[in-house]
Design a binder for these strands. Structure first.
Lengths: 345, 345
DNA sequence: GTCCTGTTTCAAAGCGCTTTGGGTATGATA
DNA sequence: TATCATACCCAAAGCGCTTTGAAACAGGAC
């Protein structure tokens, strides 16, 4: 069933039917109802493609998910972020077009989405410290919101981010207050902006307390369980092993816990650990006391907010760039405790 | 830049330019090259919407991801499956349209995708035992491939699945061969087809060895870490605790491991565990010996195959339904060992 | 030179919608 | 009665592409 047919059965013109359904005022309420009912009955819905062509709006948002070229790892936070964004899109009648691409293909994909007119806007995932995608998108004139930030000053763009630096300095301070002095950092790849910020926060806290920076305690890599396991294991095997860890993802923390337990240490007693927790739903901390002390911030909420922001930008293209800083709470769980004198073996 | 402009700058008609770019034979090789180069230079790409409207093909596939209504849990295997499917789509010039919906909204969304002509086909995720979506899609005439199966006999449809029943009977048999007799099942929700099949496999193995079925050893719920933790803890606290577990997901297994270790038991020695492993990339078992003995099957590969199948169905609509059964290998890891006499406390 | 065949190109229709720029009642006003 | 808003509705253009049916041209056969 299409507009033409629907109009014919109603004995009205396409114009009137179209207007009736889109809520234009110049159509009698009685006719509008008649049209509405007929549309309902015949299960009519305007063809998206035709509508887009006529209006020039694609009514779709692009998400280009990066995949690590070496290990083909897809970071699970994207699924959760997108779950949040999707809610918003559905509510506003937008579609979500997803593609998954290696870093080196991202620019090409943006270009394509633009020149094929497939989308009205883009969410930029996983920004690097000085991410060329920002300038690219500004040049080709495609509205976008960054999930995270880049550190190029003077660039004006819209973003939604959590206060990573503050979260990690807070976490580190918390451990220092518990008496820990040798604190390890198990971080993401530090060309990623979020990871570099977290490192900053960690280092700042150490500096504040005159604790020297020890690069043997700092790891950075793709955030997998095995990475958490292996780095924690290596760290705990050091002659001067750390007594506490600050960790960049829940999954990495799980790997670290595995290493800790395998070495017959007890998390929260022999070793303390604070992780960042994106509140992935299947790790839902629906427990009285969470297993990990964590800096917690809902990535699904970030998805919702970023999507709303992008739709708003599309609606009001002339406005100045917007931004929103979500804060991460420090939630105390079972994985932290006071520093104890070196264990006797 | 659009077709008309490109044609004008070249001094050719739109017809010729369009044909040149789409590789039709009735255009001289010299002109084709001229067109190609000009298109390249001006970064021309056909407007997807206009193209779809003209051809009647949306060049897009819909994925409707279910989200658990109670806990809003998004199962992480979807991200991985979609990563696989996306590869295929990109290669064939298709887009992937994603929406996330509660179970009760799924039918409506399928209907909308169809009547709005947004997609040429659909991947059905997370089928239930007698899933009404199959008939719905057949009725409205939208090509689809199911990731998994439904148990309604006589329904002809296309699917990609793993041999869940066989995998779980194999796992259970393996534990029985190790001397275990009290074997617990920590399963997904058993109205889901995959979960009911796994239960079948588990029960079959017990029956074969004349081991009575004990429903106090069987759990079924949404596959989260906390669920794994709580159910394992409850099971191990039984007067007649199980000595082995068969578990439906890697994440649940991680929760179970947490419970096991918290009770000062050693996995692989005091307690054995076999999990299903969908090979989620961030849990990549890139270790010499995997931490868990597992029935392993790549869900990303399933995504690739399902996508290929769907595109093939769209291309050849008259063919009979296709199907593909992927097998899960049993990979022996560190989490299983021979049964020991009851621990002394 | 004419006719035919095959190659290369084109004009125009059509996909299903929105939207512009009228048209035609209807009723109030002078 | 003529005039003018006002309310309601319509025909047709246009969005950017594919595709049909036909035209123009070249080359070979006669």
């Amino acid at each position: 069933m299409n507009l033409k047919e629907l109009a014919e059965t109603l004995g009205l013109s396409q114009t009137t039917v179209s207007r009736a359904l889109s809520g234009y005022p110049e159509v009698k309420e009685a006719t509008r109802n008649r049209v509405r009912i007929a549309a309902e009955q015949s299960n009519y819905r305007p063809n998206t493609r035709a509508k887009s062509l006529a209006t020039g709006r694609a009514m779709a948002i692009g998400h280009v998910i990066p995949v690590d070229s070496k290990n083909e790892v897809v970071n699970p936070i994207f699924a959760e972020f997108i779950a949040g964004a999707s809610e918003t899109y559905t509510r506003h009648g937008y579609e979500l077009i997803l593609s998954i691409a290696h870093d080196e293909d991202q620019a090409r994909i943006y270009n394509e989405l633009k020149s094929k007119r497939s989308v009205d806007g883009i969410i930029v995932h996983a920004p690097r410290i000085a991410d060329p995608r920002i300038k690219l998108l500004q040049n080709i004139g495609l509205p976008f919101v960054v999930h995270g930030r880049v550190s190029d000053e003077g660039k004006e763009y819209s973003w939604v981010d959590v206060n990573n630096k503050r979260a990690f300095s807070r976490a580190t301070n918390f451990l220092i207050d518990l008496g820990h002095r040798r604190i390890a950092l198990i971080n993401g790849i530090e060309t990623m902006h979020f990871a570099s910020q977290r490192r900053q926060g960690y280092l700042n806290a150490l500096t504040e307390h005159n604790i020297p920076h020890d690069t043997t305690l700092m790891y950075a890599a793709e955030l997998t369980e095995v990475y958490g396991y292996q780095s924690a294991k290596a760290l705990l095997s050091l002659a001067e092993a750390p007594s506490a860890f600050v960790v960049s993802s829940y999954i990495v923390a799980i790997g670290a816990r595995r290493a800790i337990e395998e070495m017959d240490l007890k998390l929260g007693r022999d070793v303390s650990l604070i992780t960042h927790d994106d509140e992935l739903s299947y790790f839902s901390s629906a427990e009285d006391i969470p297993q990990f002390t964590a800096t917690r911030s809902s990535v699904r909420q970030a998805g919702r907010r970023a999507a709303e922001m992008l739709l708003d930008i599309i609606k009001h293209p002339t406005h100045a760039p917007r931004s929103e800083l979500l804060k991460a709470e420090l939630m105390v769980g079972l994985s932290t405790g006071p520093h104890r004198s070196p264990r006797l073996t």
